[in-house]
């Protein structure tokens, strides 16, 4: 299938990219790795007149951290994120999710920020980023603003980005030693497959294993990847017992509104929310205990 015609713009900085985007509004799209965008263009689901290629802008493919935060730049590839030692240490669910996204070739091209901006309900890195309280740093021609990731997703393929805005980076507060996190994915084929359901959990506990902070997020079972706030509240202040896990799973099920599509039926997806929430919570706790 051939790509439709378009003009290719090469900004020298992210700022310039914002200006180009503001100028052409709906007619322009940002291109990072292109692994989502180019396919959509071939299928004619989007037909931008201008493509703003940001992949060669210097110093945008970073992952760096200080003692408080870790920052993922707009052009950091899925491979980079999967293999980064700090991410593996502080954000193991994200490292794992990035490493099981797509194939080697796609992971070398595709970016984590692109995965988020594409806003697919099944995006593999979305639920891990949600449970790590990720902040999205958004750039526009006049400056920057910051948004929590759970306010970023607005619908399938729809984000909170407004005209002239691009994502500069993602900022994740470092997790503590007494935390554990996990990503669970189920898909019909073992590898190279879009998640039929994805679930992430992140638990912080005190010395007595009482949960001080809980994060739980579900993917591919609602129009957006989302946190299950009510379940998080229920988990906090308690110990992770079988019964508590049951409650969290039940609440998550209520929050899931899956559809049947080419990948799975709604009933299977519902069942998997139940199974994967349990697994993600248990695995998170096991990780804490193994530390």
């Amino acid at each position: 299938m051939a790509l439709p015609k378009f003009s290719y713009l090469i900004p020298k900085s992210l700022k310039e990219a914002c200006i180009m985007l503001a100028e052409h509004e709906d007619k322009a799209r940002i291109l990072a790795g292109g692994t989502d965008l180019l396919i959509k263009m071939k299928h004619r689901t989007v037909q931008p007149e201008y493509i703003i290629g940001i992949s060669n802008i210097p110093n945008t493919d970073y992952v760096h951290s200080n003692h408080k935060h870790l920052t993922i730049g707009a052009n950091a590839s899925l491979t980079m994120v999967a293999q980064n030692p700090d991410i593996q240490r502080y954000f193991p669910a994200l490292a794992y999710a990035a490493g099981v996204t797509a194939t080697v070739q796609i992971r070398n091209m595709g970016t984590v920020v692109g995965n988020i901006c594409n806003a697919s309900p099944s995006a593999d890195t979305a639920t891990p980023l949600l449970v790590y309280d990720t902040k999205v740093v958004i750039m526009h021609p006049a400056g920057e603003r910051t948004l929590a990731l759970d306010e970023f997703f607005r619908g399938p393929g729809v984000t909170a980005l407004e005209s002239g805005e691009i994502v500069k980076e993602l900022v994740l507060p470092l997790t503590s030693d007494r935390s554990g996190s996990n990503y669970q994915k189920v898909s019909p084929r073992s590898k190279v497959d879009i998640a039929a359901v994805g679930v992430s959990a992140c638990l912080h506990v005190d010395e007595k294993e009482t949960i001080t902070q809980a994060r739980l997020a579900i993917g591919a079972v609602a129009p957006v990847p989302k946190r299950v706030l009510h379940a998080e509240k229920t988990l906090e202040g308690k110990k992770l017992t079988e019964e508590l896990i049951n409650q969290a799973a039940e609440i998550s099920l209520d929050e899931a509104t899956p559809i049947s599509d080419t990948r799975a039926t709604a009933s299977y997806r519902k069942k998997m929310v139940d199974v994967l929430v349990r697994r993600a919570l248990n695995a998170s706790m096991e990780q804490i205990r193994a530390k």
Partner: peptide, 16 residues
């Protein structure tokens, strides 16, 4: 036919 790519028409991967 709704699944017209190898992403959704699932031939096993090498790792399967």
């Amino acid at each position: 036919v709704l699944n017209t790519t190898f992403l959704d028409y699932k031939i096993p991967a090498a790792e399967d």
